[in-house]
Design a binder for these strands. Sequence first.
DNA 1: GATGAATGAGCGTTCATTCAT
DNA 2: GATGAATGAACGCTCATTCAT
Lengths: 190, 190, 190, 190
Amino acid sequence: MDKRKKIISAAIAIFSKKGIEKTTISDIVDQAGIGQGTFYLYFSSKMALMPAIAEVLVEKMHGDLVKQIKPATLAEQMDEIIKVMFAFTKTYKDLNKLMYSGLTQTEHIKDWETIYAPVYQWMEELLASHQQAGSLREDLNVRYIAKILIGMIEAAAEQNYLFYDQDPALIAEYRNELKKFVNYAMAANS
Amino acid sequence: MDKRKKIISAAIAIFSKKGIEKTTISDIVDQAGIGQGTFYLYFSSKMALMPAIAEVLVEKMHGDLVKQIKPATLAEQMDEIIKVMFAFTKTYKDLNKLMYSGLTQTEHIKDWETIYAPVYQWMEELLASHQQAGSLREDLNVRYIAKILIGMIEAAAEQNYLFYDQDPALIAEYRNELKKFVNYAMAANS
Amino acid sequence: MDKRKKIISAAIAIFSKKGIEKTTISDIVDQAGIGQGTFYLYFSSKMALMPAIAEVLVEKMHGDLVKQIKPATLAEQMDEIIKVMFAFTKTYKDLNKLMYSGLTQTEHIKDWETIYAPVYQWMEELLASHQQAGSLREDLNVRYIAKILIGMIEAAAEQNYLFYDQDPALIAEYRNELKKFVNYAMAANS
Amino acid sequence: MDKRKKIISAAIAIFSKKGIEKTTISDIVDQAGIGQGTFYLYFSSKMALMPAIAEVLVEKMHGDLVKQIKPATLAEQMDEIIKVMFAFTKTYKDLNKLMYSGLTQTEHIKDWETIYAPVYQWMEELLASHQQAGSLREDLNVRYIAKILIGMIEAAAEQNYLFYDQDPALIAEYRNELKKFVNYAMAANS
DNA sequence: GATGAATGAGCGTTCATTCAT
DNA sequence: GATGAATGAACGCTCATTCAT
């Protein structure tokens, strides 16, 4: 693994454990097993790591979605998407927090949309195919709906996993309502 | 104004301008016009301010909602809610960022739900009245829908205002899709 | 109990527990149950407490000696004196440390001899009586021997109790040697 | 001279001049001619210097003893030992104070015995040789007597030099009594 | 390229001291 | 006399950054 990758992995590990603010460059280089100065050959500051980390994460989520979402009805696919994104949020909850914190606290915010683009793109295409198949309301603009859906599912997942340890039974109820809501909103025949 | 209030106001002002990480306690006490040590009589650290700030902000949003949302049809009210929340996000975009960063980076995450409770409560009651009036789908659980709605609208607003300066025309389009989406999801007769 | 006494007692308690340097005036006034400012009505600083504390301690040791040392042979009395001083050092080991630290770090060092005077005086008289009785070597100057004895017994006790928790069996051996040593040094017929 | 040594020397110099409590890390690094942060690469705090300083001092005293004490009768050697230790206490009286204050105020007390070990060892061997030669009472345990002697001579020296400026004539008298006392205690034929 | 000892500006934090009540 | 909220100077300490090796 090259040094750059080592730094990113190390940073993800430490940020997850200690939070961004309490993590020092020293922590990162120790974890990465490289010298102090070496860090600066690859990144100009702690915050400059954020886009790289965000990219890794979003690629991971994109990969999960692509892998898990099989051809099926719109409702079934939305069900599965919600499942994948909830699972992802749960697994990487600490990193989700720091993606928000990290990206928002710097000028790297601009990179956000670029990083997210593949996921939006993927969702847009999925919705477009359903619209062509007549299973998604005709008058919805899939470009915007893709972003709305991703935003709302993430928000829902965060409400359940980020802020405190919700009772799994209540999460199931929540998810069920979310699915109904989404299905009513989109299904051509609802 | 008591010292505690002064500190919170000062912190909101400086955090908005410089970001959390770059803000020093010194900045805050200077702005507040109090002594260095006085800060520590009220807050144990910079991050301990976050819940207090979040509370102020959420109260503000709650106030805006209560003030702006007049009796009307569900669709009209949702339209207005989206308008208010988009406006709020736009106005306080820096503070929104820091609420995320600030609360998520500390143990104060737990306070989040408590702070948000009044807004959820207000939305839930609004939805319940529509359900009684027959204008909201019978089978939706208003408790969860309230949280889903607030989460999704905030996410949508953040996508438009937080990450970069979106073209207002595109924002209008986005909002329009959002309204359609929400209306389809909820309106009894859609 | 008047405020001054309260302060001294509180200071002894806290100094023993936390050490001088880590003790704050705040700690002392809290323990004493008085106001911040009140401290300054009685003492000008933390270190100004030291002579008062030393006085309390030395009076205590003097009292123990006077109470415990009964008429007896010189050897028996020395045995008892060693016992009392070892016990005293053990019980008040933290305070002994701080008497050294406290007094030596200030201009109050000068007070030391004055504070100790009664103990030296008492020992001198004890030795003088033995000299008159012929049980203490004629040619020893009791004025100096009194100070030497007190110094050496304290030093011995400190070696055993102050620096680490010595095995009681070894302490007993040590004390036995000390008694022999002292007896050889002083007893007219050794 | 390496940085660690520089720090110790600087600390000894400043502590002697200003006392421990009034000395700041800043003072030390200025005197040592190193950067603020460098201090912390070698010592974790001001108090963590104490064992290192004590070691330097005790080594110095040990060196003085080894150098000055020539083969001679027990009485002559004890005379010389007292002379050396009094001189040492006089020269380094400020440092003696701070060794007490410094070591006793921290967890480093435990190190004390280790630091003193070489001196105790040296004294023990000296006494043992006299015992073999028949010039020291047979029944004294040299291991304990070594510690007793060093403790008592130091205590005596401190009584004369540490607490106030004693009249030299009186010090001479004191020392004379001390020699007599020690000689009576130990000499085989007294 | 890689290192890590050294740096020192700058931060959070403490706490003795004051003074209006 | 007694108080304790408020102060702010001053300290310990951190840690991003550099640079000689």
